[in-house]
Design a protein around this nucleic acid. Structure first.
Length: 848
RNA sequence: GCCCGAGUGGUGGAAUUGGUAGACACGUUGGAUUCAAAAUCCAAUGCUUCACGGCGUGCCGGUUCGAGUCCGGCCUCGGGUACCA
């Protein structure tokens, strides 16, 4: 008997696929295409199990669709710009480019042994000048179409390192390297006008039928369309130029419950006030140390400062409200100023209680008595009727909103307005390792786009990272250039683009990766859209929204057809790969290799007890990682692929366990053993026809389940069906030829998941050509039909018995059988049933 | 804080539209094989009770002949929160 040796078998078939160019995608209008794409990896240097799971899922789909006759495009590339390369440059004194390309080489060599059906001829990295040069060309086109502009925006500023910090680099308000208190600094930055597409991006979500509902909901909420009222308060005691204070509210109905107005510390009025008031300056300064993230602002303790200024109520000029500067008001949303009705907004209520401000309920829950309705520590945000609101009293919230809007508009101090939470996309980064923004600053001409014939504007190689800050800023030779407009000496822009820009169009580039333009019309027309996109749910909002925006921008600039403005037809978000965590007695994290199992737990190599922690996402910092290279070395790629497809549904997290990997390996060995035994058998007897038929039925039932599992992204169910089928074949008394037929279909069904084993089986069983190129077998529906069905009998909704009846039984016959059944007769005790519920083919329920 | 998910035996999980809860696998136990072990094969395995039975899908409540599935209110964990990718 020959043992299955993955180490020999796997490279053999990979070479066979390569030399036959099985996975090379070529445009062929006579064939229907299918584009499968997994989110491309960041080249950190090591492939991890999450990659194996993600790419295996895509590979299963790609191989299956190929077997179904589609012309499949399944490419791979590298999301290669970003901060880690610069951090490595600082720590290890290597050039970010060298570090990145070395990582790509390493990861490619770890990825290839997995046996993915990828067209490697289309590979590129976003840091290739051939790629980012095309991105620069599109930036220029977007400038021309007025989709790009500059404005001031705040960044995290490290005053010691004199550098801009990413949110991730700020820890508890301090710079992660210098430890200095981070400040907010305003810089002129580049923006994409994504907000112009708010309505369209929102509307189009309804058409994304093959996207997960949760992602669609998240995107809708992120865009955050709201209907409200924007109006001006007349101020009292405010400095010159601030006679009006404009606010936006989604609750104009609560205007008579107003108790104060609040402005952001970045509001022009707040900035004006701090010039002459040290206290306000100090308060604003404190607010600005909160950082720039929404999370930091929202979770911070609510604080305010009474400016002493008041505003007149727009519907009662005799009523004045105090104006606070508040740390929870965001300058980026609405007008940076609000009016607050504490009774019906929790945040406003917390604030009002803290500063002892009036709380007047104006909406009364219909279940409550308006005379006694009061607000304690919880704001009332539900529906109801207006109270304490003069002419609004008795109206519903909706009626009151319309009435207030009408009166405010009538007075000419405001207007009903639709707002979006979505802000424009700030793409400027004050960093080296990114795509240079292709513009030039000229003293005479101002900001001028670079000429396309001068692209790509390549990053200079001769830079150093011995001090913080953007090396491009201090590279005078690189900065010096000619103005594309007047030809005089000018200076290059030193900001680079957000790496989200790189990943917002790579899917389109894969359709013609070597072209001299961003895309080629015929290729984009044929290959777009991505039919199935697969990636982590962590990208549910930003990456996917930016890509949707980019596809629209590329359409407007002539780089994508109108049909590709929604670039991803179907989206699947997979879960993470997790592992238990281990800590030694000193609290240090331990890798799974550093521990050994003992009675009911683990200990270290030198016998110290090990504390086992929860299973969480594999990460270097917690050391709970299993290197795919080690697994492939030990068991082979098919085992790793089979394991990550087993058990857990793809959208859920999967826990990597050594025993699970071992079990996967054992199963594949068993399948090979069975195949080999059948091939070696010299049994020529033919079995009873019913044995053959039973095996054929099982084959078709399995094929049906495996197919449905793959189509429905439930690979775990496909795997379970294949386990079951293995047991069926093992126990079958059918003859050699019948079993060989069953195993050939088994090879075809396993091919998407364990392609190397499948080829080996196919070859041994005498299959023609490569199983990777064989057509997917067709289910015979007649083979799925059973003559009898088992039906449970419930009494009062609890299962008490079951009966086996003909599948074609009528309802009347079934009722007769059930009422005559022992357990039913006993339960009825001579009485007639109160009710008899018969669901054909499913269940019978007798109510007594 | 806000938005979005998830929670089922000792473990990973399965369960059309509301219709037999626990498929399939791991683990455990017992048996076969073996000088012995590994490997392999067979069987049992939600909890509880001597048993009839009772209880069981994070918690509390509701709708229904029937709820893991639908509704209301919570709890815990995870993802995102616009400069991590």
């Amino acid at each position: 008997m020959s043992r299955y040796n993955a180490r020999v078998v796997e490279p053999k078939w990979q070479e066979a696929w390569d030399s036959a160019e099985v996975f090379k995608a070529q445009r062929d209008e006579s064939r229907e295409k299918y584009y499968v794409l997994e989110m491309f990896p960041y080249p950190s240097g090591r492939i991890h199990m999450g990659h194996v799971r993600n790419y295996t899922m895509g590979d299963v789909v790609a191989r299956y669709k190929s077997a179904k006759g589609f012309n499949v495009l399944h490419p791979m590339g590298w999301d290669a710009f970003g901060m880690p390369a610069e951090n490595a440059a600082m720590e290890k004194k290597v050039h970010p480019g060298d570090w990145t390309y070395q990582n790509i080489a390493d990861m490619r060599s770890q990825l290839k042994p997995i046996g993915l059906s990828i067209d490697w001829s289309r590979e590129f990295a976003t840091c290739d000048p051939e790629y980012y040069g095309q991105q620069q060309a599109m930036f220029v086109d977007m400038m021309e179409k007025d989709l790009v502009y500059r404005k001031n925006a705040v960044v995290n500023w490290d005053p010691v390192d004199m550098t801009v910090l990413a949110n991730e680099q700020v820890e508890n308000g301090r710079g992660w390297r210098s430890g200095a208190l981070v400040e907010r600094k305003e810089l002129t930055q580049w923006f994409f006008k994504i907000s112009e597409f708010s309505e369209e991006l929102l509307d189009a979500i309804d058409g994304l039928e093959e996207w997960p509902e949760k992602v669609r909901t998240m995107q809708k909420n992120w865009i955050g369309k709201s209907h409200g009222l924007q109006f001006n308060f007349e101020t009292v005691g405010a400095p010159e130029g601030h006679e009006q204070l404009e606010v936006y509210t989604t609750r104009p109905d609560t205007l008579f419950g107003a108790s104060f107005a609040a402005i952001s510390c970045d509001h022009p009025l707040a900035k004006e006030l701090e010039k002459n008031n040290a206290e306000i300056a100090a308060f604003n300064q404190e607010c600005r140390q909160l950082g720039t993230t929404e999370e930091a602002l929202e979770t911070a303790e609510k604080k305010g400062f009474n400016t002493g200024i008041t505003v007149k109520h727009p519907l009662d000029s005799g009523w004045e409200l105090p104006v606070y500067i508040a740390n929870f008001v965001l300058m980026g949303y609405g007008t940076g100023a609000i009016f607050a009705c504490p009774a019906h907004d929790q945040r406003d209520l917390d604030f009002a209680r803290k500063y002892d401000l009036v709380v007047t309920p104006v909406v009364c829950d219909e279940k409550q008595d308006p005379d006694t309705f009061s607000i304690g520590t919880e704001a009332y945000t539900g529906p109801g009727r207006m109270i304490n609101s003069r002419f609004l009293d008795g109206m519903t919230i909706e009626e009151a909103k319309l009435e207030v809007n009408k009166r405010i508009e009538g007075k000419g101090v405001g207007t009903a307005k639709t707002n979006y939470r979505l802000r424009d996309w700030g793409v400027s980064r004050q960093r080296y390792w990114g795509c240079p923004i292709p513009v030039v600053h000229c003293d005479d001409c101002g900001v001028v786009p670079e000429r396309k014939e001068n692209l790509p504007i390549e990053l200079p190689k001769d830079v150093t990272f011995d001090r913080p800050g953007n090396p491009l800023d201090r590279h005078d030779a690189w900065r010096a250039c000619e103005c594309p407009s007047c030809g005089k000496p000018a200076q290059r822009e030193t900001d680079t683009m957000d790496t989200f820009a790189d990943s917002s169009w790579y899917f389109a580039r894969f359709t013609s990766p070597r072209a001299e333009t961003p895309t080629v019309a015929a290729d984009a027309e044929y290959w777009m859209n991505v039919d199935q996109y697969i990636g982590g749910v962590e990208h549910a909002i930003l990456h996917l929204l930016y890509s949707r925006f980019f596809a629209r921008a590329m359409n407007l600039t002539g780089h994508l057809p109108k049909s590709a403005v929604e670039p991803f037809n179907a989206l699947f978000t997979q879960g993470m790969v997790c592992h238990e965590t281990y800590q030694g007695p000193d609290g240090k994290w331990l890798t799974p290799d550093e521990i050994k199992p003992v009675d009911g737990g683990y200990e270290t190599a030198d016998g110290q007890p090990v504390k086992v922690g929860p299973s969480i996402k594999m990460s270097k910092s917690k050391k709970n990682v299993v290197d795919p290279e080690d697994i492939i070395d030990q068991y082979g790629a098919d085992t790793a692929r089979w394991f990550v497809m087993s058990d857990s549904p793809p959208e859920r997290d999967v826990e990597w366990t050594a025993s699970g990997a071992d079990a996967a390996w054992k199963h594949l060995q068993r399948i090979w053993r069975m195949t080999d035994e059948i091939c070696q058998s010299d049994d020529t007897d033919s079995s009873e026809p019913k044995e053959t038929l039973a095996l054929q039925k099982a084959t078709h039932r399995t094929l049906d389940e495996v197919t449905k599992g793959i189509e429905g992204f439930a690979f775990n169910k496909s795997v379970a069906a294949l386990y079951q089928f293995t047991n069926t074949v093992a126990k079958s008394k059918a003859d050699k030829a019948s079993k060989a037929d069953a195993m050939k279909v088994m090879a075809q069904m396993m091919q998407p998941m364990t392609p190397h084993l499948a080829e080996e089986m196919w070859n041994a069983l005498g299959g023609e050509g490569l199983v990777s190129q064989a057509e997917w077998p067709v289910v015979d529906p007649d083979m799925l039909v059973d003559d009898t069905v088992t039906m449970p009998i419930q009494i009062n909704g609890k299962r008490r018995d079951e009966i086996e009846v003909s599948a074609s039984i009528t309802k009347e016959e079934l009722e007769k059988i059930v009422l005559a059944h022992d357990s039913v007769v006993r339960a009825l005790d001579g009485n007639a049933p109160k009710k008899l519920i018969v669901v054909p083919g499913r269940i019978v329920n007798v109510v007594v």
